[in-house]
Amino acid sequence: MDAPDRPDGPGPTMLDAVGWALRAPSLHNSQPWRWRVDAAEAALYADPLRRLYETDPDRRDLLVSCGACLHHLHVALAAAGTGVRTVRLPDPEDTDLLAVVTIVDGPADAAEADLWPALPRRRTDRRRYADRPVPGSVLEAVTAAARRHGALLLPVSGQARRAGIDAVLARAADEQRCRPGYLAELMTWTHRYAGAHDGIPAWARPTRPAPRGTGPNRAFPAGRLTATAAAPAEGGVLAVLCTRRDGPEDRLRAGEATSAVLLTAVRAGLATTPLSQALELSATRSVLARDVLHVDAHPQLIVRLGYPVDDRELPATPRRALSAVLAP
C-alpha cells in the first residue's frame, strides 16, 4: 500500500477547510463537534448531544475526538498555504468552546501541509494485520509527530508488555459489558437509522469479534468486514499515546497528536486503528500506566499500526454534511 500522490489541496476558504476537518476519527464515529465559521475564523465546539455518557463518563473521548478534528482543520489550512493562530479553551465559562482558529498573515505550517495527502485516505481499519514488522523509521516518524503536539507515543514492545496490554484490554471489555447503558450505546451507534451519516456501518465491523483476549479491537456487533481467507497471526504494533497531565487541554491536544500520528502512519503506507476502550475506565487506565508502561504519565489512546492482510482500500465511513455541524 504505497503512499498516495499529493491530491489537489482544499479550497481557499475557511469553510472548505472545515469541510475536510469533518473526516476526523471519533468515538463510534459519533462526530461530537459543532463549528461556527466566518471568512477568517472558525470556532470549534463540543456537541454534548453526541457525547456517549456511559462509554465516555469523563468526556475524555469527546475531547480527543474534537482534538483530532481540530488537527484535521490545521492540515487542510496548511495545505491551502494558510497561516493560522489557534487559541485553545478560550473561555473558562464555556466548556464546550474548545478552540478558535484564525487565519493570519504568515507562512503555512510545512509539517502539517505534508500530511495532507493522507487525510482523504485515512480509514479506521479493523481488519487483521499481517505479521510484517513496522519499520523502525516509521515508528520514529509517528513518535516525532506525537511529540510535536506535546504528547508521548510509546510503542509496546516485548511479549510481556504486549500480554499486559492485552490483559488490560480484556479487563476493560469485561467491565464495560456490565455497565448499565454501555451495550445500549454500542447498539445505538452500530445500528443507525437510514440517512444518519454517522456511526459504524456493518461493512466497517468484523464478521465476528476475535475471541476474548486475542485481539485489540472492541467487540462490536457482527458486521461484514472480512480479511483474507488464510490470514496469518495478528501482527502490527500497538502504541500508547500519553500526556504529562490530564486536564481538558491535555485531552484536546492528545486528539491533535492522535490525528498527526494516524496521518503520518497512513502517509507511510500503514493501516491504523485508534483504540480507546482501555482508557474509558479509570481502573484500567491506571493499570496501563503503572503496571504495563511503568510511566508517570496519563494514557489517552492506544493506536494500532500495521499492514492489513487484505490491501484493498476500505470505503470511507459516513460523515454528516457540513451544513449539519454549523452552529447558527
Rank of each mutant, 00 (worst) to 15 (best):
D246L: 03
L238K: 08
Q277Y: 07
V287W: 09
E256V: 08
R304M: 03
T284V: 08
G236E: 00
R290S: 08
L301V: 15
D291A: 04
E280Y: 02
R312G: 15
P274K: 13
A227D: 14
L281R: 13
L241V: 08
R253I: 00
E313W: 15
R290M: 06
G255I: 14
P299G: 05
L252D: 02
L263M: 03
L279R: 09
E256G: 11
A239V: 05
L263E: 01
R245T: 15
A289S: 10
E280L: 05
C242F: 06
T258G: 14
L275F: 12
A260C: 04
V295F: 08
R267D: 12
R251H: 14
L263D: 01
R251W: 14
E280F: 03
V292T: 03
T284L: 06
A257D: 03
R304K: 13
L263Y: 00
T284P: 15
L281Q: 12
V303H: 13
L263V: 01
Q300H: 06
S282Q: 14
S276Y: 01
R245W: 14
R285G: 08
A289I: 07
A227F: 06
V287N: 05
S282W: 05
R290T: 14
I302W: 00
D296A: 12
S276C: 09
L293S: 04
R245K: 11
P248E: 09
V266G: 00
R304A: 03
S259Q: 11
A278M: 12
V292E: 01
A297G: 01
A265I: 09
A227C: 11
D310R: 15
A289R: 13
G306A: 03
I302N: 00
D296S: 12
D246R: 07
A233I: 10
V303R: 12
Q277F: 06
L305D: 02
P248K: 06
R312A: 15
L238F: 08
G269H: 01
E313P: 07
A257M: 02
A229S: 11
P248L: 03
V237H: 02
L288I: 07
Q300R: 03
T228P: 06
G269L: 02
P308Y: 13
L293C: 06
G306E: 01
V287T: 14
D291T: 05
D246E: 09
V292W: 00
D311C: 10
G236W: 00
R285W: 01
T258W: 15
R245S: 13
H294F: 10
D311R: 15
Q277H: 14
A230C: 10
D311V: 12
A297F: 02
S286Y: 06
D291Y: 01
S276E: 09
S286L: 12
A230M: 12
V309E: 12
R290D: 11
V295G: 04
V261L: 06
A257G: 04
E234S: 07
L288H: 00
A289C: 09
T273W: 11
P232R: 12
V303P: 09
V295E: 10
A260I: 04
P248Y: 06
D291N: 10
E234G: 06
L238N: 10
H298T: 14
R245V: 15
R244V: 10
H294G: 08
Q277K: 09
L263C: 01
A260S: 13
S276Q: 06
R285Q: 05
G236T: 00
A233P: 07
Q300D: 05
V237A: 04
A271D: 13
E280H: 02
V237L: 05
A297Y: 02
R304I: 02
A271P: 03
A268H: 15
